[in-house]
Amino acid sequence: MHPPFEDVVRAHGATVLRVCRAVVGVHDAQDAWAETFLAALRAWPTLDEGANVEAWLVTIAHRKAIDVWRATRRRAVPVAELPERVDAGEGRDLDLWAAIARLPDRQRHAVALHHLGGLPYAEVADVLGGTPAAARRAAADGIATLRRTSLRWAGGGDEGRQDRERHGDGHDEGDER
């Protein structure tokens, strides 16, 4: 028995939007978001009852965001690599979104899938290819760069230092087995 799809949109809409924004940029994320939920709506009646709905949506969102990313690039007109058109209300976060947009693809996707989408590293590896350890490293490298380059995170320095020190000491985050 599947609940009304509206419940799914309300429960996971914000998470899916963050994943789309991280992969394709703030401006094109809207198209990716709509395509994600459209594909999910189509498949909703036949989704396994026990499936993790958010993980399922995050995986679709990643694929749709890449589709939008490729389509945008095919249309040429390489205006800018970074999202420039941002609604006024969202301007306060531009620095961090812009920092995410500057990350190398693999790091950006790993951060999007794990930290914004909540996928465990084993599933991030399924999506991106490679091993869970490599996925974890890509995400950690991405986070380290964000801490270095995003002003917004400068205030949270204690935690950031601790995080880096731990990595420096060879400890890992340990959520892969």
């Binding site: 914000a14 993980a55 914004l116 465990p120 995080d163 892969e176």
Partner: peptide, 29 residues
């Protein structure tokens, strides 16, 4: 979704803090 059955859905405290901090920094949608 086998990974969830292995308990991997629960990130460690450190990862969870990083994730929370990132989500907070990106502000609510």
């Amino acid at each position: 979704m086998t990974a969830h059955e292995n308990g991997e859905i629960r990130p460690t405290a450190l990862t969870a803090r990083t994730t929370d901090a990132l989500a907070a920094a990106l502000a609510p949608v």
